[in-house]
């Protein structure tokens, strides 16, 4: 049995590796297909043909695409992400600080939303079809149906415009006290928490409801088990795989959420950096940010699948 788990996990990791290669290939070529010549863009329309030619050589732009891809991939593996076109700084340097900021935001959101969402999701499943469950379901449909920027603007409208508690649409980089910290992070974190909790509540509720409908839970009921025992002793251990899967998938949704939230709140994270890079068409920067996002996403989905494998009692 142990042997089967190991081989299943290895198979999943192999798939992740293949996916990672296909994804980096896709990201590289999507950006490499850019119309217009990179050298001309960099040097401007007024540059002499000799200068353009020289730069093309220096950047290996005339090599076949597959070589450029491999060279770039090798760079990525060694942490060399290239040099930004826009301001001639190494991409790695531009990204590092921003990445930390985004991770802070994402981490804080995760710490708040995971326990919150699981509590709500599991209680909703326990109290299925009660008023509590129905209200929660309606609220979730509301949240998943509106774009993230709307939740962000609502937060601004509520906290900054009407209540006047927090500064609107600006992020102060001077954080000295816990109070400053709370003020700075409150709105982005609240927005992201609302967005990803909705997904997580919905999926964890569905997972628990499904296990509550199984014959072995009915059997436990007929043994005289209490409602709490049914949920915590019989349903939850079996719903664990799907729930963890829901958590990981929802967290991967964070990656999409931060793009909007960082822009709305002008938060100096990697997503904002990327949106700015898109408007300046700064290729190496876009590629690197995209790869980081894709790998983050891949990491979370792979983790989710592996945990689902490990938590399957039939494989124990």
């Amino acid at each position: 049995m142990k042997h089967r788990i190991v081989s299943l996990v290895l198979a999943r990791l192999a798939i992740a590796l293949v996916t990672a290669i296909i994804v980096s290939f896709a990201v590289f070529f999507a950006t490499a297909m850019l119309p217009g010549d990179t050298a001309t863009i960099l040097l401007g329309q007024a540059a002499t043909p000799e200068a353009v030619e020289g730069l093309r050589k220096a950047m290996h732009l005339d090599d076949p695409a597959i070589f450029r891809f491999l060279r770039w991939l090798a760079g990525v593996v060694h942490g060399d992400l290239g040099v930004s076109y826009a301001n001639n700084m190494p991409v790695a340097k531009l990204i590092s600080g921003r990445l930390v900021n985004t991770l802070k935001l994402a981490g804080l959101t995760a710490v708040i939303s995971v326990p919150l969402a699981l509590t709500l999701g599991i209680t909703a499943a326990m109290l299925r079809n009660t008023l509590y469950d129905r209200c929660l379901t309606i609220a979730i449909i509301g949240v998943v149906s509106v774009p993230e920027f709307m939740i962000a603007t609502l937060a601004v409208l509520l906290f900054a415009v009407y209540l006047n508690w927090l500064p609107a649409v600006s992020f102060t980089s001077e954080i000295r006290t816990v109070y400053d910290f709370a003020r700075a992070y409150a709105m982005p974190v609240v927005t992201l928490t609302v967005v990803i909790s909705a997904q997580m509540i919905r999926m964890s509720r569905a997972a628990v409801v499904e296990t509550l409908n199984t014959p072995y839970v009915e059997m436990a009921l007929l043994k005289g088990a209490s409602r709490g025992r049914l949920v915590f002793h019989h349903a939850l251990p079996n719903a664990l795989g799907p729930i963890v899967n829901a958590v990981a998938l929802s967290l991967s949704y964070l990656l999409g959420g931060v793009i909007i939230v960082e822009t709305v709140f002008n938060y100096p994270g990697i997503a904002k950096l990327m949106v700015d890079a898109v408007s300046t068409r700064d290729l190496p920067l876009i590629q690197s940010c995209a790869i980081i996002f894709c790998f983050g996403y891949l990491f979370l989905t792979t983790t989710a699948d592996i945990i689902a494998i490990l938590s399957n009692p039939r494989l124990r």
């Binding site: 996916t19 896709a26 950006t31 297909m33 850019l34 898109v278 876009i286 995209a290």
Partner: peptide
């Protein structure tokens, strides 16, 4: 399946950002 799953593992907003940047 393998190819489309890989495509699926690119976050949607990111994919569109990259395409918009490119074309």
């Amino acid at each position: 399946s393998r190819f489309l799953d890989a495509l699926n593992s690119i976050p949607s907003k990111l994919f569109s950002l990259v395409v918009v940047a490119a074309v």
